[in-house]
Amino acid sequence: MADISIVQDHSLTPEKARDAAQQVADKISREFDLACKWEGDVLRFERSGVNGSLTLRGQQARMQITLGFLMGAFAPTIRAKVAEKMQKVFCAA
């Protein structure tokens, strides 16, 4: 198993940060076929071999992803794509 942790600072309001988090979720859910749902300020996502969360705290968004054995081989690529998407949507404002 592989774990990915990405922290993205931002200066968005809570509402805009949630919108940005939803944009990240929409993109990664399409690309990686993930099911996503909000639990307060935490967006949880999963599929076979992948689970994780995107947590909004103040001026920071924290993505935690756990990849199963087969998906672990793609960890560097997944990390790069997700980090790029987070930077784009959280720093766009």
Rank of each mutant, 00 (worst) to 15 (best):
E31G: 04
P14N: 03
L12K: 08
S5L: 11
V50N: 03
D19L: 11
R18C: 08
D9R: 13
E15A: 14
A17K: 09
D3I: 02
I4Y: 07
D33H: 15
L54D: 02
F32Y: 14
S5Y: 02
D19G: 01
I4G: 08
L12T: 03
Q22S: 15
Q22N: 15
S11Q: 13
G40L: 10
R44L: 09
L43D: 07
A20C: 09
R18H: 12
H10V: 06
E15W: 00
R30A: 13
A21V: 11
K37G: 12
F32G: 06
L34S: 07
D19A: 12
F45V: 01
D19N: 10
S48L: 15
V42A: 07
F32R: 05
E31F: 05
K37C: 10
A35R: 14
V24T: 04
L34V: 05
H10N: 04
D26M: 04
R47F: 01
I6D: 03
A21I: 11
A21C: 11
R30F: 10
A21F: 06
I4H: 07
P14K: 03
V50C: 09
N51W: 05
S11N: 13
W38F: 11
L12N: 02
A25R: 07
W38H: 11
V7N: 11
S5V: 14
I28E: 11
E46V: 00
S48M: 15
C36T: 12
Q8D: 05
C36S: 14
A17T: 01
A35Y: 05
G40N: 06
Q22T: 15
A21P: 09
H10Q: 01
L12G: 03
L54E: 04
H10S: 01
S29W: 06
R47C: 03
K16M: 11
D9S: 12
P14I: 02
Q23A: 10
T13H: 05
K27Q: 13
D26N: 14
V7T: 10
C36I: 07
L54P: 01
V50D: 05
A20F: 12
E39S: 14
I28L: 12
I4P: 05
G52M: 02
P14W: 00
L43P: 10
R44T: 06
R47I: 03
F45G: 04
V42Q: 04
E31K: 15
G40S: 04
A20N: 13
G49T: 00
Q8P: 02
I6N: 05
S48G: 14
T13P: 06
R18F: 13
A35M: 12
K27Y: 09
Q22D: 15
K16E: 13
H10A: 00
P14F: 00
D26E: 13
D33Y: 15
G49Q: 05
D19C: 02
E31L: 13
V7Q: 14
F45T: 01
I4E: 07
A25L: 11
L34G: 10
L43I: 02
C36R: 08
H10F: 04
D41N: 12
G52S: 01
A35F: 08
E31H: 11
T13K: 09
R47T: 14
E46N: 06
L54R: 01
A20T: 15
G40E: 09
R47H: 02
L12C: 02
A25K: 06
I6T: 02
V24P: 03
K16P: 00
I4T: 11
R18D: 04
D9Y: 11
K27S: 13
S11Y: 07
Q22I: 06
H10Y: 04
I28N: 09
A17H: 06
